[in-house]
Nucleic acid binder design. Structure first.
Lengths: 350, 350
DNA sequence: CATCGTTGCCCAATCGATTGGGTAACTGTG
DNA sequence: CACAGTTACCCAATCGATTGGGCAACGATG
């Protein structure tokens, strides 16, 4: 109830009074388009208004403006969890783009739980966001469909669902690239750690990988496609399961770098040398990948860029434009975890 | 300009009209305290108002309320970067606590740049946040002092500065714990990768470590305290610098897990076995630490909890209470990177 | 029966901006 | 000089809530 309060903010009214004009004139000069400003006041009056505003350190009260205009310049962002570096990086892209456009963003974690997705979305809507960006779409699209039916403007990022507007990496192609690489290295007994079954990222990466292998005449048995959480612990669990199998794979594609790191750890624990006994590839090229003791082969995805494009997409949608989804090209980055020649001396000595 | 718009939100006025009461009565029943509600309307009227509100799916418009009350229930959070897992985790704690209290948060990245800190803070203030949480304080406190002078309510988290209210880990103690551990293992030639020179976290961890060693009669030459960025690339650079020195340390304390990971990579590149040839400890016990090929000894800090407590602190401040800073106790977690006995078979074979 | 307290509401001002619609003064044209 | 068009403003309604004050009706009290 108390107040730490700084000095009260100057309002348009005080600015207008001191500048000797009506508040409407001050509004047009300070907050309107330059077109508005020109026709609202003469050169000198406008300068005077701006001078006074500057002096009083006037800042338009966004709540008052939103109340009147019904637009908040706020966008809600819902992600599974910001402590996932992939999402944090995408969010940074979102924030950069939003800031550049004078928009503000709210982020919330849904932990990929339908109930929380719903709850967070309602919170965002009750804050009257102009639109939403979802980084946590589930492939079944149930929740997203509902949002679409309510005609709430939104864009998906990182994961796609249905044909709702989205900005994603070309995950299918990414999976193919890894398969291509493994095939070149001569791996025939391979496995995929496929991520969460509801995430299009994992699904598409797996599909691309599987399809490329199939084209090479090699079928992946379903026992060598294991779902997992998108983190190191998840990768570890999945790897343990794979190693329990009768025939050990010679190469493992984890659809996420952190899961791949878990795989590296598990291999060591089992006395296997990553990059030599078993090849490992990840996805996303997180900054850690190249710094690991055994640097990780991975697929670089434009995470930051995806965030920015998602904002652009949403803004175009808010402007009533017709939009279409974007799919950005990934790159394969080969490092020691799949290429023994690149292993450091000590690791090669193994 | 266009509108994707969903159906218009119901307002208090329509609810009041349908329930046959004045809007003020509806306001007290729906948005006031239960005390207000009781004296504003009879049992039956109140129930009727709530029924209508429910039916119309009424949500109070926070902008209208803020305009009138001058409180926004918004708090601004400024961190160096959310793609740093430590900050992302702290932010999750902040978000959880805020949600529980019915507050919303804005996060922004300052990249530890004074200019951006200033700019983001102004953005938050122009959004009329009730208070701020800074996770990016610099030890010199210049910027923070300025904010304090403007009597803007805020709390610091993770890093302290001056005697502004903060919630931190007891970093000094954390540093001592690592030193204690290294001493027990018999390490006398040790080094510290100390993080950014302006972050209290690195400063205090280094100081605790240095002091404990001094008490054991061992002085750290300044050449063995190297500053670095708080990420794997930073750790790698710092480690390279240390290995260039004449006398190689037998143990390295990196004040951050990611920097420690960079050290592990560098050691390998130089043909040195982490945990055997050189002991390595990190700080924060990020989830990755235990999953690495060579699991990392580190100091567990209560990141999530710190975030929640920072919110509590800020809220108490906003309520006009006198508050004092909190310093939470860390724990040492010993793993293979400092203890050869714990190395996995293949690593021991090295 | 006059008085006093409650109970249960309603009135109306207010927060700070936006915006459609005036209108007075001035300029240019025929 | 009459008239149209432009320039440079001002007026006032409005967005959706909050909140101090007022007041009628009713029961209790002396």
């Amino acid at each position: 109830m108390g107040q730490g309060e700084g000095q009260r903010h100057a309002t348009l009214r005080t600015v207008a009074q001191l500048a000797g004009v009506d508040v409407s004139t001050a509004s047009r000069v300070l907050n309107g388009t330059s077109e508005d400003a020109r026709r609202a006041a003469s050169r000198e009056k406008a300068d005077e208004i701006r001078r006074v505003a500057e002096e009083l350190n006037y800042r338009s009260n966004p709540h008052a403006a939103s109340l009147r205009t019904r637009r908040t310049k706020l966008i809600g962002v819902i992600v599974p969890r910001l402590s996932d570096l992939v999402l944090a990086t995408i969010y940074e892209g979102i924030e950069d783009a939003a800031t550049r456009l004078g928009l503000s963003t709210f982020v919330m974690n849904s932990h990929d739980e339908p109930r929380e997705q719903k709850a967070r979305t309602e919170v965002a809507l009750s804050r009257r966001v102009d639109g939403l960006i979802f980084g946590d779409a589930h492939i079944d699209g149930r929740f997203i469909d509902e949002i679409a039916e309510r005609r709430i403007p939104f864009a998906l990022v990182n994961r796609r669902a249905g044909n709702h507007p989205s900005v994603t990496c070309d995950d299918y192609l990414g999976g193919r690239l890894v398969a291509e690489h493994f095939l070149e290295l001569g791996h025939e007994r391979v496995a995929v750690i496929a991520g969460e079954p509801y995430a299009s990222t994992g699904i598409d990466r797996t599909a691309g990988f599987r399809d490329r292998y199939r084209e090479a005449g090699i079928r992946l048995p379903s026992s060598r496609i294991v779902h997992s959480h998108f983190d190191a612990a998840g990768g570890r669990q999945a790897a343990e399961q794979l190693l329990r199998g009768r025939t050990r794979p010679t190469a493992v594609f984890a659809v996420n770098d952190f899961a791949a790191i878990g795989v590296l750890g598990t291999l060591r624990d089992h006395g296997l040398r990553p990059g030599k006994d078993v090849a490992v590839a990840g996805f996303n090229d997180t900054p850690l990948a190249r710094e690991l003791p055994v640097p990780l082969t991975t697929v670089r995805s434009p995470m930051h860029e995806m965030g920015g494009l998602a904002v652009d997409l949403l803004v175009r949608l808010l402007d009533g434009e017709q939009v279409k989804s974007e799919r950005l090209a990934p790159d394969l980055v080969v490092r020691a975890s799949t290429d023994p020649a690149r292993l450091s001396p000590v690791a090669t000595d193994l």
